[in-house]
């Protein structure tokens, strides 16, 4: 592996750009993603940045079961992303269809339309769970891209979250 490639892969792990796509979700997961990016749990400190276009993104965060109408759009957007690309399914719906299993217009989880790298279950997962999932994803990424060292980021410890909470409340 050339030096340049190594550098690029390293940058990918250190600062993945994420893109958020709603494939028919109820919004619960979407607001929790935004909450995870907001001041309290600040995902940006891991270098994760939300971008508005699939062409700029490395990782797509998918929420919601895939409805019939959204499926072609989801696939088209997936094609528009540049390689290497990763998909994270956020929420029970995106993982398996959740409460909407058995509906005539729903295909099930996101993995019925496009390949998924990581699943974050929960209805909706708490922002801290999303943070943890993102951290896990970074681990997987570094493995896949051949970067052996530890990712710089540590998951937020329970006490830390508590202390942040107290600080905000005070």
């Amino acid at each position: 592996m050339g030096f340049l490639r190594k550098l690029i892969n390293r940058a990918r792990v250190k600062s993945p750009y994420v893109f958020h796509f709603n494939s028919g979700s109820c919004n619960g997961c979407d607001i929790e993603i935004i909450a995870a990016l907001m001041p309290r749990l600040d995902l940006e400190r891991f270098g994760i940045k939300l971008v508005g276009s699939p062409r700029h993104a490395d990782v797509m965060l998918c929420t919601g079961p895939v409805t019939e109408q959204i499926k072609p759009r989801l696939q088209r957007i997936y094609e528009q992303m540049a390689e290497p690309k990763f998909v994270v399914a956020i929420g029970s719906c995106a993982c398996s269809g959740g409460v909407f299993r058995g509906s005539y217009n729903v295909l099930g989880g996101v993995d019925q339309a496009i390949p998924v790298t990581a699943y974050i279950p929960g209805c909706p997962p708490k922002p801290s769970a999303i943070t943890y999932g993102a951290y896990k994803l970074l681990e997987v990424l570094s493995e896949q891209l051949g970067i052996s060292e530890d990712v710089a980021a540590e998951p937020v410890a329970e006490e830390q979250t508590e202390s942040i909470k107290e600080a905000v409340e005070a």
């Binding site: 058995g102 989880g109 390949p115």
Partner: peptide, 21 residues
């Protein structure tokens, strides 16, 4: 009467195989 079996379709048990996408 759900002639095309749409209501069963979403009861999946795992991801599709890579070649099916």
């Amino acid at each position: 009467a759900d002639p095309r079996g749409l209501m069963q379709r979403s009861k999946t048990t795992g991801p599709k195989k890579p070649e099916e996408y």
